[in-house]
């Protein structure tokens, strides 16, 4: 699937999170070792307080970017259902600043290792060319 065709994907079909807890809007790119998502901060977003998108929202956005890649592989390649992924570990994650309403986050996740049902990732969150957060995470798939 090329990057233009990604615009037809409804990320809600790739994630176990639903409703107001979906923290990415679009997938922009997927390949063997990486995934890129985007999200514009809406005033009604549950992580917004005083017009600011919280640090926990940024972390959830990173985790869901990785989870969407798992969901994509599950749906389009393995042809199985969406499994629940939970954060197992967060390490050396730095928040430079929190986004404001209307700003668009572009989140790039590199898969550094994939061992059974665990994914090790390195993430960068940008607003335009400004790096606002970066760090690494371990995401574990659980059977519900």
């Amino acid at each position: 699937m090329n990057d233009d065709e990604m615009n037809d994907i409804n990320v809600r079909e790739l994630l176990p999170q639903q409703g107001k807890f979906v923290m990415i809007d679009w997938l922009r790119h997927i390949d063997e070792t990486s995934v890129v998502s985007s999200m514009t901060v809406d005033k009604d977003n549950i992580f917004v307080d005083d017009d600011i998108f919280s640090e926990s929202g940024i972390i959830e956005n990173i985790a869901q970017t990785a989870a969407a890649r798992m969901g994509y592989i599950g749906k389009y390649i393995d042809k199985k259902g969406v499994r629940i992924g939970v954060i197992g570990e967060i390490k050396n994650l730095v928040i430079e600043r929190c986004p404001h309403i209307g700003e668009e986050l572009t989140t790039s996740v590199e898969i550094t290792a994939e061992i059974f049902s665990t994914l090790m990732i390195q993430a960068k969150v940008n607003i335009d060319n400004e790096l606002i957060a970066h760090g690494s995470m371990k995401i574990a798939l659980i059977d519900s």
């Binding site: 999170q17 639903q18 939970v86 519900s144």
Partner: peptide, 24 residues
């Protein structure tokens, strides 16, 4: 809380990021 209805439907799990938020 409504967060538990969406995370996850039929399977309430406290989001990891909410634990960070609670500590903050």
């Amino acid at each position: 809380h409504s967060i538990y209805q969406d995370h996850f439907p039929g399977n309430p799990v406290t989001p990891g990021v909410c634990i960070i938020q609670i500590v903050k």
